[in-house]
């Protein structure tokens, strides 16, 4: 730009042009980042898929039904891990769902003054923020010694039930399942509590006016009305439990076998990867990535389902 152009007017149009360029540039930059997030998701699946490809080619779907994991013979099948992943998550849900929904009701239905509820809600948020490796550490040194006498008692009295049929091992499916339950209950509590609190007050008033007691209102009106939100929270918690690595790797015992008894060691897909990846090479790496891909698709399916359920609830609202 020469000095002759430096009239106030010319300068203005010039800077307007610059401003417009910056503006469009900024728009496309933000659009790029937004689309890149969707891109990352596809990139993750692509990356897992390419590294896992040799194993997918070699074992195909048999990988999902075979229970041999043998690095010496280079034969891999992940059935025990898939079984362990699902069963440990089911144990976690069996404990966490009643517990979590119970606490959510307790915190949302004026059992307590709001002055007491706020710090409790903060504590629950904190429970959700505790890293899983700390849960694992606590599980090894505090929780397992604490729970073992109870498990012994269950084994001696209810040992005829297959799932309790072996004496509790020092690391077992049940330990991982219970610690997972502690980890996922904050998710269920916080989302279910928000759901119950956001229901229109007319529902509550109408039910009470018709003569229902507080608990009849909760069980027959509020819970059915908030059901999709509660189910959504359970699905999100399930997604977390399926993919949880550290607590499982530290507590489940990492045994490559399927045992009916919950008191036996087992392993999950995530714990298998955490244990073997560092020392793996060649086909074993591919097989571990194949297992990771299975885990990714499993959690993806659960999370997408949760997303759909929760968003449907929001539409009703």
């Amino acid at each position: 730009m020469t000095t002759a152009d430096r009239s106030a007017f010319g300068d203005d149009t010039q800077s307007l042009k610059v401003a417009r360029t910056i503006d469009t540039g900024f728009f496309w930059l933000t659009a790029f980042f937004a689309l890149a997030i969707a891109g990352i998701l596809l990139w993750i699946v692509y990356e897992l898929f390419t590294i896992a490809w040799p194993a997918i080619q070699k074992f195909g779907l048999e990988f999902l039904t075979s229970s041999r994991w043998n690095p010496v013979e280079n034969i891999y099948g992940a059935l025990p891990q898939i079984y362990g992943t699902i069963i440990s998550s089911i144990i976690a849900l069996l404990v966490a769902v009643p517990l979590g929904v119970g606490v959510a009701i307790f915190l949302s239905e004026d059992f307590l003054p709001s002055k007491v509820v706020t710090p409790i809600a903060f504590l629950i948020e904190l429970l959700a923020a505790v890293p899983s490796v700390v849960y694992g550490l606590w599980g090894i040194f505090v929780f397992i010694p604490f729970i073992t006498p109870f498990l012994d008692f269950i084994h001696t009295t209810l040992g005829w039930i297959p799932i309790f049929s072996t004496p509790p091992s020092s690391r077992a499916m049940i330990h991982a399942g219970l610690v997972l339950a502690i980890m996922i209950s904050p998710i269920i509590i916080s989302i279910s509590r928000d759901t119950l609190a956001s229901l229109p007050p007319q529902l509550r008033q109408g039910s009470l006016a018709l003569g229902a007691t507080r608990w009849e209102t909760i069980l027959q009106v509020l819970i059915p009305a908030g059901l999709s939100g509660i189910i959504g929270s359970i699905m999100l918690a399930l997604g977390r439990a399926l993919g949880e690595t550290m607590a499982a790797a530290m507590l489940i015992g990492n045994a490559n076998k399927i045992s009916i008894s919950w008191f036996d060691p087992a392993s999950t897909i995530a714990s298998l990867i955490a244990n073997q990846f560092a020392e793996a090479s060649g086909l074993q790496v591919s097989s571990l990535l194949y297992a990771g891909l299975v885990l990714m698709l499993l959690t993806l399916a659960v999370n997408v389902l949760a997303e759909i359920i929760v968003s449907r609830f929001q539409e009703v609202e």
Binding site: L41, G243, A270, A274, G292, L295, M296, N303
Partner: peptide, 8 residues
Amino acid sequence: LSGVPSII
């Protein structure tokens, strides 16, 4: 993306 397990 927020549901992707950390090990993945």
